[in-house]
């Protein structure tokens, strides 16, 4: 069964979507969408470095993404520039440096489009193992960090005062982001990774009474988007990465449709 490239693509995509769901929830709760984009763009620098020094691609991308995350944490503490401006500088600087480095390496021929927009149909069984192994690790870490991360999302000082360690949780969260970006790059590509983080989480919001349910729903919606996008791409012969994002967007727009809900009406009145 795993011989079929389409089945491999679905397995890889669903594995990734299940991982990005809870992470994506924190990204939108904490208003870190641009942060996610910045870390994703830095992945191209990781690609260039891995080619230059003949390193493992996933490890190099993770290392650069982790480095940029920590650099951001450090620069934000200095408070010289606004976080927004810092993100804008780092996001495009790392992307541009990566592109320039690749152009200099005339001896390697790489398919830039595959890195920028993903090539899910080319995933190998090893890639699937990496995605599911890495994904399970990320989900386990998120579960372990859940309480301090959620409390710090509401108010970092409150979390700190009541004995949790919000700073540490935040650092781990950024490293987990770097892991996800390293394993997701092949599936949807550098430019579209954040959409797989944000759109399923946004679509899940309306149907979620608690943060925990929202995290699970975001994973499921992401998985549906992957399957739908891949079938769409097969049917209409469209690129697979963008098709997945379009499918996620359709699910998000469906979630916005007005639905008569009794709960919403009775809730305001209390008892």
């Amino acid at each position: 069964m795993l011989d079929d490239f389409f089945v491999r693509a679905i397995l890889a995509g669903v594995g990734l979507a299940l991982t990005t769901g809870p992470l994506g929830c924190f990204i939108i709760w904490r208003r870190m969408a641009y942060f996610g984009d910045t870390i994703a763009h830095s992945a191209l620098l990781g690609v260039a470095l891995s080619l230059l020094f003949e390193l493992n691609l996933t490890l190099a991308v993770f290392a650069v993404a982790a480095f940029v995350s920590i650099l951001l944490l450090f620069l934000q503490k200095r408070q010289a520039l606004s976080a927004d401006a810092l993100l804008g500088i780092l996001s495009h600087a790392t992307l541009a440096i990566g592109l320039v480095m690749v152009a200099f390496m005339s001896w390697v021929r790489i398919d830039l489009i595959a890195f920028l927009f993903g090539d899910i149909l080319a995933v190998s069984t090893t890639d699937i193992a990496l995605i599911w192994g890495g994904g399970l690790f990320v989900l386990a870490a998120i579960a372990w960090l859940w309480r301090p991360l959620l409390a710090a999302t509401v108010n970092a000082e409150l979390a700190e005062a009541e004995g949790l360690k919000p700073e540490r949780a935040r650092l781990f969260f950024m490293l987990l982001m770097a892991v996800v970006i390293a394993i997701a790059m092949k599936i949807v590509g550098i430019m579209l990774i954040t959409s797989l983080l944000i759109i399923p989480a946004a679509a899940a919001r309306r149907f979620s009474p608690t943060p925990e349910i929202m995290a699970v729903l975001a994973s499921l919606i992401g998985a549906v988007a992957v399957v739908g996008g891949l079938f769409g791409s097969l049917t209409y012969d469209t690129p697979s990465g963008p098709s997945i994002v379009v499918a996620a967007l359709i699910l998000f727009m469906l979630s916005l449709l007005p639905v008569r809900r009794h709960r919403a009406i009775t809730q305001g009145q209390g008892s």
Binding site: V154, L158, G163, S208, P211, M214
Partner: peptide, 16 residues
């Protein structure tokens, strides 16, 4: 943030 679904019940056990 509006995107965080948090009931009073869930707020109570935020830090433990």
């Amino acid at each position: 943030d509006w995107t965080l679904p948090l009931s009073v019940r869930r707020l109570m056990t935020l830090t433990g």
